[in-house]
């Protein structure tokens, strides 16, 4: 079982994290998709910490010796999922930035050409 002290600590930390996510969402500094995913992770960890019997049953079912380890395992699993999704998004963004930079260079060169032609016509 997990002690009340650690339960309280986990719940407080998770609440603080969720509050930070909400603040970032409200300020428009975080994407909703990611905000919801992180809220789900923090919320789940807090909920599991508040339900030690469920946690113990799940730990026994999966063959994990300590319910506390079960909690960390869940947190790690969810975080890995989000990090994987972030890696995919970063790669996509990199490709998009590259295309954007290439198009910008092309258009800039074209506009230079047009300006030179205009000057020649004058």
């Amino acid at each position: 079982m997990i002690s009340t002290r650690i339960q309280v600590l986990i719940v407080v930390v998770m609440c603080f994290c969720v509050a930070s996510i909400f603040r970032l969402l409200a300020q428009g500094k975080m994407d909703y998709k990611l905000g919801i995913a992180w809220t789900f992770v923090f919320g789940s960890v807090a909920a599991l910490a508040l339900a030690p019997r469920t946690l113990a049953r799940m730990a026994a079912f999966l063959g994990i010796a300590s319910p506390m380890n079960m909690l960390f395992f869940f947190g790690f699993l969810f975080s890995t999922g989000i990090l994987f999704s972030l890696s995919r998004r970063t790669s996509r963004l990199q490709a998009q930035v590259q295309r954007l930079a290439q198009e910008t260079a092309m258009r800039h060169e074209m506009s230079n050409d047009v300006q030179e032609n205009k000057l020649q016509l004058r």
Binding site: Q98, A101, Q102, T104, A105, H108, E109
Partner: peptide, 12 residues
């Protein structure tokens, strides 16, 4: 000259 606004690396 094609001026890339950011450094893309040799491939880009």
């Amino acid at each position: 000259v094609l001026d890339l606004p950011v450094n893309l690396g040799i491939g880009g």
